[in-house]
């Protein structure tokens, strides 16, 4: 699979009413890459993720997943919003949430067989949640809650992960763990596209980057894409005011 593009974006343009959220993005996202979406607030990072999910009507352009429209490949796609809007008091255990990952392919009636249970066990193990499997979800820490949703995506059998600011609100240890996990997924050939604010982190740990400022500023291998010159281009309007370099 390496060497192929998993997403091809051609002139992708999205408007929210009068406001242009994305303007003529043409880019390819290679299969098995760890891609950082970088750009100032309002640059269209979340919008691009939602467009990749096939949720937004495009004003212009098109997105192909492989050679199909994203809407036809949902079980392969996993999406983690910035702050999952779930009720943490919901009467549900960690294991039950992870098991939901099997439901999209089982549908309403598919039997939850021993093989399904085993996949859930493996996902719990991969995300180091086995010991917490029986807990009600409120009792997890922030990092553990995130791992629970990632485990659900793994159980789902997803190989493309779209993560909106997964590092927001994580402490140092949890960040390090997440980086470790993403690198392992990279080694396994999974594709991750993540909105990231921390430039140093994106440069050091991601294989590729897309630098956005509504329009595409640069795309390619992370180190080149996130060069100082490009960063200035993407953030230039804001930086002089703050008087700091990102």
């Amino acid at each position: 699979m390496a060497g192929h593009d998993i997403f091809r974006l051609q002139d992708v343009t999205v408007h929210y009413g009068q406001r242009t959220a994305l303007d003529g993005i043409t880019a390819h996202i290679p299969c098995g890459a760890l891609v950082a979406l970088v750009g100032p607030n309002g640059a269209g990072k979340s919008t691009l993720l939602r467009a990749l999910l096939g949720w937004l009507p495009l004003t212009r352009g098109e997105i192909r997943l492989g050679d199909k429209h994203p809407r036809h490949l949902h079980p392969r796609l996993a999406y983690l919003p910035q702050r999952p809007e779930v009720d943490w008091d919901f009467p549900i255990s960690v294991r039950e949430v992870v098991a939901q990952g099997r439901w999209p392919s089982l549908g309403l009636f598919g039997r939850f067989t021993a093989a399904e249970r085993e996949r859930v066990d493996r996902a719990l193990e991969e995300l180091d949640l086995t010991a917490l499997a029986g807990e009600q979800i409120r009792r997890l820490s922030g990092g553990q809650q995130q791992r629970m949703f990632l485990a659900r995506a793994v159980a789902q059998g997803a190989d493309i992960f779209l993560l909106d600011e997964p590092f927001a609100g994580l402490d140092l240890a949890a960040s390090a763990e997440l980086i470790h996990l993403l690198q392992r997924w990279l080694a396994q050939g999974r594709t991750v596209v993540a909105a990231v604010h921390d430039l140093a982190l994106a440069r050091a740990h991601f294989s590729h980057a897309l630098l956005l400022d509504t329009r595409l500023v640069a795309a390619g291998p992370a180190a080149e894409t996130l060069s100082d010159a490009n960063i200035d281009l993407a953030y230039h309007r804001r930086m002089p005011v703050l008087g700091v370099r990102p």
């Binding site: 999910l53 949720w55 809407r71 949902h74 079980p75 796609l77 996993a78 999406y79 919003p81 999952p84 809007e85 779930v86 009720d87 919901f90 549900i92 949430v97 939901q100 439901w103 999209p104 949703f149 659900r152 789902q156």
Partner: peptide
């Protein structure tokens, strides 16, 4: 369950 607990996941997974 999905619609009550996490409709965004249901949608992303194509339900």
């Amino acid at each position: 369950v999905l619609e009550v607990f996490d409709p965004i996941f249901a949608r992303a997974a194509g339900m």
